[in-house]
Design a protein around this nucleic acid. Structure first.
Lengths: 345, 345
DNA sequence: CTGAAAGCGCTTACAG
DNA sequence: CTGAAAGCGCTTACAG
């Protein structure tokens, strides 16, 4: 199909692929000019660009990512480090990231850290060997080795899900603390006083939510350490159910429970049905993140909507700018949050 | 840190990276020998292998994937095409795949098709430009262009989730038809007679389940097209709730509903609570896949457990063999299934 | 069992 | 604004 006029016949290792030289020959220019014209680099005559693009189209030329990576010293992919795909939050985030990055010609390489700093370090080490063009990582909490790898690599990086005052760090997210405080305020405004905070996994963002709840409770003179329920197990419906059963037995009784994630709260709601505990009459229940199904529960779950798709889109956009050597307008983008009041409170 | 003794000083484009030549120099052999020793290729003196490995370790040598890809004409990554990450089934599958592939030195490139053949074709086209070492695709249902791309690429490929008699196709999965038939048999054995089948998304595997249900019902003279509820919308708790409300209003009444996926069944269970419909007394409900939360429902959901982690592990293992040029023992691996009887039937 | 040569298909740096 | 030369760091063929 594609005649390869430039290569000799002897000892051919040709792949049958249409190369830059083929395009150059057809367009009557040098390979470098083709390279520059196609990448839209400065300083190429408009007429030549047109001729080159025409030739490329005619031959069906597609650049070889491996050759490009070897010569330019970075690949055409972005490495993304997230804690867990079983948390639907990160699935939504990832979708948005890919939707922005793919049209721009970047592949996405996903690494799952399982909330483990050692695994994160190991994954980053592997990813960096592949010389990604950019990096997306979750939050700021990681070990020094990982931090050093990131800094030493020189790869542009945007952080996900949190906010930072440090202008040397690029990040897109929301204030987990303020969001939790807002939800707590809602509960207080409804008249609840003994509001428990129940969390699993205990990752940094979960603890930030705890802080938001705690500060708000303390401000009203209602904080009490026996209201704090911290379970290091991974978050799930089942764990939420177990925690609910424990908390509901407490004396003096709590009148509301703020779960750090919707899956826990959904499990609690189901446990309440099972145990015959009236929600919100006997105890109000609230969650966080507004995950799938929360609006379907009985009663529907009050929660905080965190716009993770916006996080993905904005972070990918910011990274795109950085990879092009541009400076983004702002280093820290706040996507906000929204308290969603439903029947469970 | 790493002195680069082999490179000249002028016009250096060196990356500071430790290269094959550095290792060769330290070990006192040629670069080719280092390459062969490290990859474990045939015909290298054991003493040399030891010396080379030693030198590589000392220098902290890591092969450059881009250079390797360019020279060998295929990358060190595997492309995986799955329909959707919001279906927890595929999250579990992916985890298992990565757990097998990563230790073997392969990165995983994920493409999400959204159950769309055009998107799948487009994704595969992009993936193939990156010359993956292997390919993992979901099921057999795709357009001719995609099929041609796969065949023409020469990239080893294993199919996921289904079974095939065609010995030229590698696949790991289970019989969706038999699994659905088994669940239907369970319902029949419990005395249910008007058993509805309710499905969303309507992807190939869903329709295979429909066929299994239909055949079983027909064999008992109980099939009736009014029992078939097919909704092309994406599967979700909310859609399950809607479908339940429709089906429960039907006359003559159905006494059981087999939902093609657990999320629909969970939504139905919640809707039943909301509407005050007794499960399983008024109507039994069953799902498929045994997803997270199904055991937490009220009542707990009867379903079919599909061992998707086994699918991921076995498929990745088979692909690993193929990528090494070996022929796997079997071309079609059946991981089986298990009917899980809980309170909802 | 080992190696010198060539080449994979691009881009960087230097000139003009 | 354009190009000839060199090189990115490996592996594939071909010899011995």
């Amino acid at each position: 199909m594609s005649s390869r006029p430039s290569s000799s016949m002897a000892r051919s290792r040709a792949t049958g692929r249409v190369t830059l030289s083929d395009v150059a020959q057809l367009a009557g220019v040098s390979p470098i000019t083709v390279s520059r014209a196609l990448r839209g680099e400065r300083a190429v005559d408009p007429d030549l660009i047109a001729r080159v693009k025409d030739a490329a189209l005619k031959l069906g030329y597609v650049p070889d990512p491996a050759a490009r990576a070897l010569a330019s010293r970075h690949g055409s992919h972005v490495a993304v480090l997230i804690p867990m795909l079983s948390n639907a939050l990160f699935v939504d985030l990832l979708e948005a990231v890919q939707r922005t990055l793919r049209p721009a010609g970047y592949q996405t390489l996903i690494g799952i850290t399982h909330y483990d700093q050692g695994e994160e370090e190991q994954l980053l080490r592997e990813q960096l060997q592949h010389r990604p063009a950019g990096l997306l990582v979750t939050g700021f909490d990681r070990n020094d080795a990982t931090r050093a790898l990131m800094a030493g690599s020189g790869v542009p990086c945007v952080h996900l899900m949190e906010l930072s005052d440090d202008a040397s760090i690029y990040t897109v997210g929301l204030s987990q603390t303020r969001a939790a405080a807002a939800l707590t305020q809602h509960l207080l405004a409804q008249g609840y006083r003994r509001i428990a905070f129940a969390a699993a996994q205990l990752d940094p963002r979960t603890l930030q939510r705890r802080d938001g709840w705690r500060t708000e409770m303390a401000a009203h003179g209602l904080h009490d350490t026996t209201l704090e329920w911290l379970n290091p197990a991974p978050s799930s419906l089942a764990v939420g159910g177990q925690m609910f059963a424990q908390i509901i037995g407490q004396n003096p009784p709590v009148d509301a429970i703020f779960f750090c994630n919707d899956d826990l709260a959904q499990g609690a709601l189901l446990a309440a049905l099972r145990l015959g505990v009236a929600v919100p009459e006997r105890v109000a229940i609230a969650g966080f993140n507004d995950l799938t199904g929360s609006d379907q529960m009985l009663p529907p779950l009050t929660t905080v909507r965190t716009p993770r798709a916006d996080v993905g889109t904005a972070a990918a956009g910011m990274l795109l700018a950085l990879m092009q050597g541009k400076e983004p307008e702002r280093t820290s983008v706040d996507v906000g949050f929204e308290v969603i009041v439903r029947g469970s409170t």
